[in-house]
Design a protein around this nucleic acid. Structure first.
Lengths: 231, 231
DNA sequence: CTTGAATTCATACGAACGTATGAATCACCC
DNA sequence: GGGTGATTCATACGTTCGTATGAATTCAAG
């Protein structure tokens, strides 16, 4: 007897309107827990408990824990990269054939990450740490997904940076970009997670800068690193 | 009847000579797996299988999975920080009251990480990724352990950097150090894990620099970022 | 009010987890 | 070469994991 479950799980019906409140609660709870404990450290049961949902809800709405995880990332990453790309568009339109100044490009990378929680309603501080973690996660499927999601922005920023740093060989830029994103991710993580980062030297106990101060610090560091002289 | 297990587990007899070959095999296997799958994603059974050991061996030699994990980190991190500190000592002795040049300080941070596999017999490339991962791990006990393990080096490098960058307020240095370690960790991870990092733009498909080339690139970027002008 | 789809519920299953136990085996000194 | 402590072994226990199932419930339209 074929059983009609009312509706097949979301994984098999991707066109269904995705607005169930349980669905959103699961995504929110999963996001929070993924930030705190990583993918492998977050169980389906912990998620549904935090969301006040039933165990079957994950299977019903997402089909699989992994599909839920991917959706958690996609929900945040898509608008983030869209924001980055539209900033890039605006900068290039404004510059009219001239290369966009380096600091502006770096800001187009950095600012959307830091500002997301204000432009994207409901986004928590956790977003940054989530994405940082995602890129370091051992799960190859997750990594591939994130790379795909960022591919367009990556090629755009590549060529823009090459135009802003014409004396820099592309091979060098590739490595400096790695340093860039390392600094960005770790810096964001420290900023968001500012609470208890006790410093051995009390005089250096860090203050938490406001959003603009933090963006400025980050942009200065990264822009200086990107335009370092080469051997 | 009190049962004499031959010997109580290592956790309760920390003075025992730690040179069992099974013990080392467990540490090696755990190191490899922790790098690939993270702490929560690595099971005791996977470790003993990779080490060719018995399930009871973990309990016998370390008492607990968590104690094994901490020992994996400690085994690598201790000599690494010792190397960094002795480099710092040499630089400061050579400079005689003068501040040590910035690039030399940065190199004292970077080089031990990159070189460890040659100066420390048996260390695999995995070491870097392991440590990078450890600092991002959600496990608070692990994080506290790593912070403790690095505390001495941290205070030393703090004051040395402040002397090399006298115009930089300590509060600024704190944040730049975060960027520094983010770039270091992520850069090392990319370098070690160089294999398949396909780049959208084929012209930018990165080459893997040799050790010295990589160290130089990293030092340039970081030193430039650290000495960026402040607002 | 009825009906049928959409959703939520309690519950079950097999697998894998971390840990513990006591017997078997090994290595070495007298 | 017999005995003693150190180590390894097979195995078991209780828990938690991800997933699946089918019966209840909710809810909007007829």
């Amino acid at each position: 007897m074929s059983v009609t479950l009312g509706q097949p799980p979301a994984a098999y019906a991707p066109d269904r309107p995705r607005s169930s409140s349980t669905r959103e609660a699961l995504l929110d709870a999963a996001e929070q827990l993924l930030v705190e404990h990583g993918v492998a450290g977050t169980s389906t049961r912990a998620i549904i408990k935090a969301a006040g949902a039933n165990l079957g809800a994950v299977n019903y709405h997402f089909g699989t824990k992994e599909d839920l995880v991917l959706e958690v990332f996609a929900r945040r990453l898509r608008p983030l990269n869209q924001d980055r790309i539209s900033r890039l568009n605006a900068l290039e339109a404004e510059a009219q054939e001239q290369p966009v100044p380096l600091e502006k490009l770096v800001e187009a990378i950095v600012r959307p990450s830091v500002e997301a929680r204000e432009t994207q309603p409901g986004t928590t501080m956790a977003l940054f740490r989530l994405i940082c973690r995602g890129f370091q996660d051992p799960n190859p499927q997750l990594k591939a997904f994130l790379n795909k999601e960022c591919a367009e922005f990556a090629t755009r920023i590549d060529s823009a940076l090459l135009r802003a740093l014409p004396w820099l060989p592309p091979q060098e830029l590739v490595w400096r970009e790695r340093f860039l994103f390392g600094a960005l991710n770790h810096g964001l993580d420290s900023w968001v997670h500012f609470d208890n980062l006790p410093h051995p030297n009390p005089e250096m106990q860090p203050m938490r800068p406001d959003r603009e101060g933090f963006i400025h610090r980050m942009v200065s560091f990264i822009a200086a690193g990107l335009s370092a002289p080469i051997a």
